[in-house]
Design a protein around this nucleic acid. Structure first.
Lengths: 217, 217, 217, 217
DNA sequence: TATGAATGAGAATTCATTCAT
DNA sequence: TATGAATGAATTCTCATTCAT
């Protein structure tokens, strides 16, 4: 009567897992498109093809579903950050790589940006209620601190750089450009997402960050 | 004895104007707090003390009200930008002043940040439908281009800097810090809005921007 | 100081009269197009170019306005009926003339049909509340009775025809065709209002009525 | 023991069907009493005892509900027409039977008349949007054409009668009397719906129609 | 006479959520 | 686990009507 249930999930469990993932994905897209207030549980159900009732079965209510989506989003980006392996590069190369990574991740995960906007509109309440809080902690800050320290020692980065400030600046330069691309595009009357424009933005960001961090020779 | 009648609007006009302004202010706060989807017309009416019907009388529907709020927000920041008079300063000083202005404006007008987030969530549709579009155009870009050109000529700023890229970077560094301060605060477990933290952020931003723009000596 | 006011209306009175007529006309069209429940006081005001408040000033409320419109509509058709002078014709010609008149009046006053529909939807309550009730009484019934009697005496119409029944039949054959032309057109998939179709309808109606009323020879 | 399951729908299905029918019936009465513009969704819900939300669940909005009501009304009268079996009668008898049927159907289904009025007020838009359009097509026209042809061949009906014109005349004579009975009653100051009056009306209609259609001997 | 501003009661529609199976 | 039916509480928007001048 025991117990292989944990290691060998039966079909029902696999279906359950699959349903939850489908809901999570559909909810992520819905919340990203419409925000928390504009998202519709009905639409999420439609997106999955599953019954609306199931959403409540697995996630209790809309707010908890949003919380789960946020947790997943953070979990995803943390996994990507872990895969970076900046420690194998010189400090300046690592810094450049970090700028590239940030830019590309935001570019490839536009939903992440709007989800964060929504989370902040609600004063990060959903994150603070989360008990998977540990996954919020970015390893990047420690990695960045290491890089900065390593660069300082090697003499190819200047000293005295605050890793948190630098991280926020890198993220901010990418984030603002992409998150606000619609209003910026309207104001400047130009397409900020053409391949050329995207390339130019990354160059500019790298120039600024490395211009700031490189040791003066 | 006659004739100040032109400069002194009668009560009716004044009331209409006043009512519209009151609605606009209340709506701004409501939209800023809750986003477009989360805002409630009822609450806006309550905030003004006026009848809900009046909101529809003057603004037709929630979307047009949001549009009017955005127009006002842009109109306000453009007015502040006009008052800057950067042309009286040296190029490096003007640049530093611009960074400060951006930072302080966002700090003092947190509603502006969330309004822009909402506008972008809706793909800037409300701005594009606006026929007060000219007020979107920031004079800052031209001012910044002038500064950069002046600095290059005077030999105290490096050449080849794109004013649009630089503007977005300045704005982005301030915007991201403030707009996302709740999630960032949760992640870093620190208060980003203490006086000290705010001072540190402004210093960092100025350092980065000026470090990038100053001519190498 | 005295008194020509009754016979020589001053400008203000003329304006007042003109405003009331404008409202009445606009209201007639609005009620005819949308029915009593679907009519909008705002739209009536817009149609006149006058202020909405004026409608209430002159007509108290929407129901009384509808009542006034109905009274006017009956007054108009009674005036047209009075102008018929059927007494100058032989009985069969008078009958044919009456069929023609009915058909043409309905054709030229489509609003009359929908107004009557609305009046009946409300169980003629507005007419019964009217104190201009006398204008409801159609002279046609008496005229028709005279014709039928005259024809019987002259031997060119059969006897024993009830004028009320005949009147309702004439009216009904015209009314139903025109009032229900949209649904009939949809069912029969043909245009009932082409010149040819209208001509055919009038012929058919005359045939039926005269076929019924003419004395067998 | 198994297997009547196919013929006996389970409770859920039965309830859904029953709810929809209840809504349809209540809506029919509400629309018939007040017209489309005057009908209230709230009242329809109250009439059914069901939740108002359910109306939208099944019928989307008020206009589509009205459309469904119209479709049902047409479906009902078509079913009654199908049950007539006029082909077993001689042509004159069939014609008389048709007049009687029309009169009695309108008399027993007064809601049908006001529903049609409303449909026409809206220019039959709801019917034209219906994709159950085939149920609009009355078999009566074909039946009537057959009768007329049969009568002509048998020599007991005159030739050259247009079935559409005749159908509209029969319907119109009944419709107008009943649909406008309130205004007619007010004008003629008599009760048009007393048993005697109803009998007289049917006689008159039959006289007119048969007088018109019978072959002259 | 005429008008723009303002309102309360409602009316259609929506939405998150629960029921029953 | 999964689902269609059902609901109460909003929520946006409307409408006839009145206020104040």
């Amino acid at each position: 009567m025991p117990s292989t249930t944990l290691s060998v999930p039966d079909d029902r469990q696999r279906d359950a897992e699959r349903s939850q993932q489908a809901i999570l994905l559909a909810a992520r897209d819905e919340f990203a498109e419409h925000g928390l207030g504009g998202a519709r549980v009905d639409r999420i159900a439609q997106r999955t093809g599953l019954n609306k009732r199931l959403i409540y079965y697995y996630f209790d209510n809309k707010d908890r579903l949003f919380q789960a989506v946020l947790e997943q989003a953070y979990s995803d980006i943390r996994a990507a950050e872990h895969a970076l392996h900046l420690e194998d590069l010189t400090a300046p190369e690592a810094l450049r790589r970090l700028v590239e990574f940030t830019w590309n991740y935001y570019l490839e995960h536009p939903e992440f940006l709007t989800l964060l906007n929504s989370a902040n509109l609600h004063k990060a309440r959903h994150l603070m209620d989360s008990n998977r809080a540990q996954q919020l902690n970015s390893p990047l800050i420690d990695m960045l601190a290491d890089i900065l320290e390593r660069g300082r020692k090697d003499g190819n980065l200047r000293g005295g750089i605050d890793p948190v400030q630098l991280y926020i600046s890198i993220a901010g330069m990418a984030y603002f450009y992409l998150s606000n691309n619609h209003t910026l595009g309207a104001i400047f009357n130009q397409n900020l997402l053409s391949p050329k424009a995207k390339q130019a933005r990354l160059s500019h960001m790298s120039d600024i960050i490395l211009g700031y961090a490189l040791a003066e020779s």
